[in-house]
């Protein structure tokens, strides 16, 4: 069972369960409250403080899918052109190589020295497979630029 964010009773269990909230001023309850009130600033860096550990969502006594709600806000931020630049770089790697974390020469050498294929049998080894991934990405407007 899942309830809407408007059923939040502001108990703060989410904030108390948050691993980021223990080291920076990240207040999950405030995000839910601001979202309810239509007061989310999509450029606020703190939207990206969530590690998606799901503690808030699992422990919410009102069964609100809080982590999923934060992911939804991030999607709005991305579409509004307010994603963080290192994250855009990761998307670029995915388009360029099929991997969010692509291989490099040093690791390719290490693979060979371990007795593994120098490149893994993934999009790194199959150009047509990479082309398929690119077509899916480009269909969603990701150009890799």
């Amino acid at each position: 069972m899942t309830n809407s964010i408007y059923s939040c009773m502001k108990c703060g269990t989410c904030t108390g369960a948050c691993p980021s909230g223990r080291v920076v001023a990240f207040r999950t309850r405030k995000i839910v409250e601001d979202h309810c009130n239509g007061e989310i600033d999509l450029g606020d860096e703190s939207l990206w403080y969530c590690t998606t550990c799901y503690n808030c969502m699992e422990r919410c006594p009102r069964h609100i899918d809080i982590t999923d709600d934060i992911l939804g806000l991030r999607e709005q931020a991305y579409r509004a052109g307010k994603a963080l630049s290192p994250h855009l770089k990761v998307l670029g790697y995915l388009h360029k190589t099929g991997h969010a974390v692509p291989i490099n020469e040093k690791v390719a050498d290490k693979r060979a020295s371990l007795g593994l294929s120098r490149l893994p049998p993934t999009t790194h080894s199959y150009e047509d497979a990479l082309e398929e991934v690119r077509r899916i990405l480009e269909g969603e407007g990701v150009s890799g630029e």
Partner: peptide
């Protein structure tokens, strides 16, 4: 799984789209 890609990464890709 020949030609598999990134899963894709739940952090960035699930957040974006």
């Amino acid at each position: 799984m020949e030609g598999a890609s990134c899963c894709p990464a739940p952090g960035v890709i699930k957040s974006f789209d």
